[in-house]
Design a protein around this nucleic acid. Sequence first.
DNA 1: GCCTTTCTTTGATCGCGGTCAAATCGCGCA
DNA 2: TGCGCGATTTGACCGCGATCAAAGAAAGGC
Lengths: 232, 232
Amino acid sequence: MASAAEAMPDRCADCEIRRVALCGQIDVSALRRLNTLSHTERLRAGSTLLWESESADVVGIVRTGLLKLTASLEDGREQTLGLAFPGDFIGRPFAADMEHSVTAIADSTICTFSRTRFEALAGEVPDLQQALLVRTFKDLDRARRWMLLLGRKSAGERVASLLLETAEANGADPGEPVPLPLSRQQIADVLGLTIETVSRKMHLFARSGVIALPSLRSFTVERPGELARLAA
Amino acid sequence: MASAAEAMPDRCADCEIRRVALCGQIDVSALRRLNTLSHTERLRAGSTLLWESESADVVGIVRTGLLKLTASLEDGREQTLGLAFPGDFIGRPFAADMEHSVTAIADSTICTFSRTRFEALAGEVPDLQQALLVRTFKDLDRARRWMLLLGRKSAGERVASLLLETAEANGADPGEPVPLPLSRQQIADVLGLTIETVSRKMHLFARSGVIALPSLRSFTVERPGELARLAA
DNA sequence: GCCTTTCTTTGATCGCGGTCAAATCGCGCA
DNA sequence: TGCGCGATTTGACCGCGATCAAAGAAAGGC
């Protein structure tokens, strides 16, 4: 039994993402302080939490759902810069303006914190700052690996790469259906392609027996080795 | 006059990058501790300091020169993921393996540190860790902005963007020559294009009077507004 | 259930940028 | 100054992926 001084906040006690998120890397007293700053934000699919080139006064940790980070050109062309899964950190401590928008793809809940108060707490809790640093390095490496895909891979290689990563992230065995949380347009925005090209390549792979497409929002990997080869 | 206890290390006293680098964000006593860990590494243009997918036991701060971060596919296609200018931090604290190579483009000098010792010091000096965090956020936003270029911009827009950024980074006025530290191949690797396309677009802009190409390794901006428009 | 709306698929065509090839430039060096 | 080699430019051509257009399939509303 934990004493009153060590009690974990109710909201955190049964939170499954604590084992993968920042808040699982700090001790209970720091967690209690972090929790006093936090508000739970519920976001419907399609609504935007933070806007590109506007100042943002909140940061947060994704609790449930799925969000995308995007940047756009004036003429409307859009590129998805990354996805934020449960446990991921969003927002920019120590910077006023956002360089990208953050929009919910699925209904999502986010533990949000005042940016300035989070910054202050990070300054006082080295474990928190270090966990955030390690996570940011991972995000940077993820972003850079995606640059190789965007700069040098063909359309087929891009689609195969995404399918492979999705299947692996789900730990799916060959033949087992893998949920696909993104629409065709969202896949195109992630891969830097058009919706038509995405559709064509997926059905090309399906016709050749590498994958199957049992429904719009799922797929199965029939020949993992071949899919890996196609991803280059 | 500083007392002996506060004396700045000789190597740092006259170092011009201290005002832009991590080492300028920490107090003198922490700087002295950091300095005791450091070795000066001299790198000839073309030689590689850190290798993709190999473990790295050093991190460092670029002092002079210019380096590139690159990732490759098995078949030899290469993408430049970023450039490291004087003051930039390279390497991955808290991670054993590199996800990209770090190669000198020009002769360079780097203050290097044992990765594990740097990690230990960062844990003891919150200012150091915070400065590294802020720098990493900036690197992440830089990388993500480049993703928009790689995913959604045309060849002409990519070339114009690079020329514009280079001119702005040099604070060059219209008509004034801007040094171009990259070869055509290196430009192509940064932009996700081929050398032929880069050459064609640069000469197209020169013929239309937007820029001039007085030498292979320099250019001038003749019509800044038009160049900005071309960058989209 | 049926209708509307939106998303996806498929087809036809076009143009950008890659590929292959050759000429030319520029720099180091004898 | 002329030579040699790598880097750059230029040309010809082609294929990939974008664009435009239309049909088909799901999803939501009444």
